[in-house]
Write a protein that binds this DNA or RNA. Structure first.
Lengths: 114, 114
DNA sequence: TTGACATATTACTGATTAGTTATATCGTTA
DNA sequence: TAACGATATAACTAATCAGTAATATGTCAA
């Protein structure tokens, strides 16, 4: 009994605060869309506007948030500012979340069929 | 050039919506506190109130959200309702987030020292 | 049934924030 | 310098939501 899995990380209160902020950063569909777009590689603000269909001001604001969370890096190229993914954690988190969504769907299907 | 990492998952729009909802669920410090408390094992609502210091109504509401996201399971034991973690994804996500926070701290320290 | 206790729900309030519009800033070229 | 195009910021609005207080629901015991 009481078989423990591996990690079981205990987070301190400040760690917990920071963690919640990172999750909040990822809780906006528009920001996830931007991160998805950047998985192809580096893109300028204008290109991100085109790809996502969001307004320029909106994209810029979201990029500021993502940059503040150190999830993207920016670099000027003349008049343009290019953004790219700064941390592989986005990929990893999305992988875990996708796996969970599939588990949930399977369970829902099972619940329906009985 | 163009060395690709592994996954690079592309999420569909509905997947993206669901993912953002899961992240939103985890973006509240109080809910993370509850999940942390449940890492010890199954706890009743009253015990969670004691451990976290949150109000009874507040804990109950957060547990409803966590249950809706299938992150916790509930089971009645007489007058009590016991909650326990329902998905290891919480542990895994927290692990990734903690690792990133440590990377960020290291980078900030490096930035300060020059 | 009634009373006592554990949990859930409702109605409300204050705070946060995504998106928009308008404007400001920055870099380049003429 | 001035004019332009790309990006960032400011002010605002509407919607969302955590927390609280009060109440409802549910379970057991007498």
């Amino acid at each position: 009994m009481s078989v423990k899995k591996k990690s079981n990380k205990k987070l301190s209160e400040p760690q917990l605060q920071r963690a919640s902020m990172l999750f909040a950063t990822l809780s906006e569909p528009s920001r996830l869309r931007l991160l998805q777009a950047l998985q192809e590689g580096s893109l300028s603000v204008g290109e991100l506007v085109e790809v996502t269909g969001l307004s320029q001001a909106n994209v810029s604001k979201h990029l500021t948030v993502l940059h503040g969370a150190r999830l993207v890096k920016k670099s000027r190229a003349g008049v343009f500012v290019n953004y790219e993914l700064a941390d592989s954690v986005v990929d990893q988190l999305c992988g875990l979340v996708c796996a969970k969504m599939e588990r949930d769907l399977a369970e829902e299907a099972r619940a329906l069929n009985g």
